[in-house]
Structures are given as structure tokens and as C-alpha cells.
Design a protein around this nucleic acid. Sequence first.
DNA 1: CATGGGATTGACT
DNA 2: GTCAATCCCATGC
Length: 203
Amino acid sequence: MKPEFYSRPVLEVARDLIGCVVSHGPTSGVIVEAEAYHDSEPACHAFVGLTQRTQVLFGPPGRAYVYRSYGIHALLNAVCEPEGVGAAVLIRALEPLRGVELMRARRGADRLEDLCSGPGKLTQALAIELEHNGVDLRRGPIRISSRPAAWRDVRVAVSKRIGITKAADLPWRFTASGSRFVSGLRAKAGRTPGAPTAVTPEK
DNA sequence: CATGGGATTGACT
DNA sequence: GTCAATCCCATGC
């Protein structure tokens, strides 16, 4: 990933991260779902300003922001925009790529669709912990690399963010169109709340 | 120093 | 569909 990739507007980065690969040790997966957060809107942790908790969000782009959610799950974000702006992309779901058996063991689940189809699930599958807060995503141990050839022209759908109460109407969620590895999909016929509502053709 | 809420998940009804 | 688990940290007294 080029150094300037993350310093761009967070919405652009979120869309462009779909199809890219997150890897940690022997495990890796393709990003199929991501959400943008920016200090200008109240759903973002950085909305409250610079605190000890948010200092990574306001720091240099391309770092990991990892925090604990609901006291249980670690959630992975990629810090974006220039230093001084509090913005990040929440990685919400992966399509498992390498280390699938290790992921199964860590997750205690068998089906591929259950391994990384949620922000707390994928951190468990890849063994991403709070101690990784602030690490450089271009250097590791957690890395994000550019799209494999097969994902070069992935179609990206846009919809509302999930699981938040503030600024819930912003269409800042991005998913790989048609992927069965995104979170929160109930296999119900017809329209699913929170389902993609628009399509952004890739170039 | 005490308190409350949260970018979730999985078990159970 | 409902709900508990569980912990970090911001906020307020």
C-alpha cells in the first residue's frame, strides 16, 4: 500500500479498501465490508476531541486503531486523513484467504461464512488484540496490502452504517457487491434492512 | 472516585 | 426477537 493511500479523505479510503487484504501471521482475508468514521460526526470516537483514547485516531495515517467494544470484542480500524484529523475506517468483514484452519480453531466455528463476518469475529480469527493499537499497517505485524488481481474490479455497494445510534443515516458503509461474507445478512427473501442501497461502479 | 454507555456476538425464547 | 456478558474510558460530581 502506498504511503499516501491513507492520507486521503476517509470515504475514498473506505471504498478503496474493499478487496484489499488484511494479514496477521499465517492468517489473512479480503476486506468485503468497511465503514468510515470522521471527527466531524458524533458516531466517531474522535468527535469528543483529542484524548488519550483518541490520540491514535488523530495521529499519522496508516496506523491501526484497535479498541474494545462492549467490553468483549476488539475492533480494527485503519487511521486515515492527514495527522491532526481524527478519522478511520472500521474493518467489518473479511473473506477468509489463508490460515483458514487456524481461524476455525480460534473461532470455534466451522463454516467459512462464520469466521470473519463481523468486526469482532475477524479480530478473533486473526488474533488481533488491543496491544496492536497504533501499529503501522504498512509494516506489521498487521498488514494491509493492495487488491489481488481477482479483486481489481470489485463492485462496491454503499449503504448506512450498522449498530450505531448517532449519525445513523450517513451512507458511509461499503461492501463488496454480492459477497456472502459480509456481516449482519439474514438469509431472508426480499429486502433486508441495512442491505446495500446503491452501487458505485469501479472505474 | 463513581458511573454509564458502547462501531458486538451468541445463546436462548 | 430478546438479552446478558464484560471492560475501557470519558464524563461528572
